[in-house]
Write a protein that binds this DNA or RNA. Structure first.
Length: 456
RNA sequence: GGCGUCGUACCCAAGUGGUUUAAGGGAUCGGUUUGCAAAACCGCUAUUCGUCGGUUCGAAUCCGACCGACGCCUCCA
């Protein structure tokens, strides 16, 4: 039984659908710059969610939107004297590339805002017709006073009512649906009944999600900072028209901090995922992100990344003990240990707890292995667990037999080292070990003879 | 200012009323094993969960106050 924390109710709820196909919409990147590791905390969380649904035998259909209409993109395009597309396509590619490298399952849809502007205009017109929106100087605003359900994610009392400088708006928290063209926007605009302009962010997501996934979305997710006002405003637009829940479950992931501060491009403390991947493998980054719960803040630190690396080493060494061509499991073979791992994941995606259970299993199994009894059973149970674990975490590269073929030179060194060992010539044996190390190989002596590992 | 989240060992991090006199990982030190290493294993490291009160037969877990960190209320994953 899968439970997830629904931000609408602020409670863990049992996940229910009337269809086996779960539709998920995740707010994606604004493509004006390279995505950073904090952005990817959220995208890895989406991936975790989808993998967990698959573990529970659901099929999924998911979309992550590409926000390619935005003030920052426009100002950058003007400043750099480039076409808007030259910028957006570059950073969209950067996002997709990093997603692939981080082994994020491919979503069915990556819709761009620019491909749906006509629908947005039609949608805004509907809101205007129904009196939920008003037009001032070519801008269109949503009128929150005309929509009684405003305040799903926020306590309205906390919002103050001063209109301050923005005299166009009736209420301070009215939000813009359509932004009128200004001279700074250059030649970037779309024609509409209200004049030249462009759709605003909240409308982009609202329209795209409905267009791509239909009006029955099971899960809508995003980073915690989008809860208010972005998701509030999406709900207001859609639900004022449909009178139905826009999405049944809203999931929000916490931030990644750096030195106790939120990582963000505007704070200037961001670290691009591209640069991170130069220093740390995708496995390490995944492990780092998944070893805390998605609703807790985490801090980026070198020591934590090093720790993640060591965790992966421990798991990889464990995995190497088993014959890998049998990596296939059926649910019928699950033992209590496997089940408690699944239970942890199904308890609101509790990856740290699940990780603890898996490590406990590794430790127990290593103990059992030293006794060299029940090897067949241990082998099977371990292979199943490794596969189960990896179906969620995806941090172990299972070695296939090709990796066990070593270069000729290395094989010769191994052979002569074995001869030296047979002759109890420890000095020569150690010399060859050092030589192998310098060539990038670690040799270890076990009961079953020499074992060679590639230095990482 | 308003609203909210969090504070668990040297570090990271689960647990959110009794089966926990607090999982798991990292680190340190000692030991087993090994020709020596490495890996693996064993042992040590929180009678205590920010502080102080309260509720309860019983609290890290509920309530209150205080202290500290962070987030949202403006663009943001």
């Amino acid at each position: 039984m899968l439970k997830i924390f629904n931000t609408l109710s602020n409670k863990k709820e049992v996940f229910k659908t009337d269809s086996n196909l779960v539709k998920i919409y995740g707010c994606g990147p604004t493509v004006y710059d390279h995505p950073h590791i904090g952005n990817f905390r959220t995208f890895i969380f989406y991936d975790l969610l989808i993998r967990t649904l698959h573990l529970n035998n659901y099929d999924t259909q998911s979309a992550i939107n590409i926000t390619d209409i935005d003030d920052k993109i426009i100002s950058r395009s003007i400043a750099e004297k480039k076409n808007m597309q030259d910028i957006t396509l570059k950073y969209e590619k950067s996002f997709i590339d990093a997603s692939r490298k981080l082994k994020i399952l491919k979503n069915e849809f990556y819709p761009r805002a620019t491909d749906h502007v006509e629908d947005m205009i039609a949608f805004i017109q509907k809101l205007v017709d129904k009196n939920y929106a008003y037009v001032v100087n070519g801008n269109v605003y949503f009128d929150i006073k005309n929509y009684t359900n405003y305040g799903k994610f926020v306590n309205l009392k906390t919002l103050d009512d001063d209109i301050e400088n923005d005299l166009d708006k009736k209420n301070k928290n009215d939000f813009v649906l359509w932004k009128a063209w200004k001279s700074e926007d250059g030649n970037i605009f779309w024609e509409s009944a209200w004049g030249k302009g462009r759709p605003a962010w909240h409308t982009e997501c609202a329209v795209i999600s409905q267009k791509i996934l239909g009006n029955k979305i099971d899960i809508h997710c995003g980073g915690i900072d989008l809860k208010f006002p972005h998701h509030e405003n999406e709900c207001a637009q859609i639900e004022s028209i449909t009178n139905k829940n826009f999405a049944n479950y809203w999931l929000h992931s916490e931030h990644l901090n750096i030195e106790d501060e939120k990582m963000s491009k505007s704070l200037g403390n961001s670290l691009s995922i591209e640069d991170m991947l130069k220093k740390y493998s995708s496995n390490i980054i995944r492990m780092f992100l998944l070893s805390s719960h998605y609703r807790s803040k985490i801090s980026l630190s070198k020591s934590k990344l090093e720790e993640s690396k060591k965790m992966i080493n421990r798991i990889s060494r464990f995995a190497e003990k088993f014959s890998t061509n049998e990596f296939d499991f059926t649910k019928n073979d699950l033992s209590d240990k496997h089940q408690s791992f699944i239970d942890a994941i199904n308890d609101d995606l509790n990856t740290p707890k699940a990780l603890g259970i898996f490590f406990e299993f590794i430790s127990d199994t290593n103990k059992a292995l030293t006794k060299r009894k029940d090897l067949k059973k241990i082998n099977q149970e371990s292979i199943i667990f490794l596969n189960l674990f990896n179906s969620i975490f995806q941090v172990v590269d299972i070695q296939n037999s090709d990796d066990k073929v070593f270069p000729q030179e290395i094989n010769e060194l191994l052979l002569s080292r074995q001869q030296a060992r047979d002759n109890k010539d420890w000095i020569l044996s150690d010399k060859i070990r050092d030589k192998l190390f310098n060539l990038g190989w670690i040799v270890e002596d076990s009961l079953d003879g020499q074992k060679l590992l590639k230095k990482k």
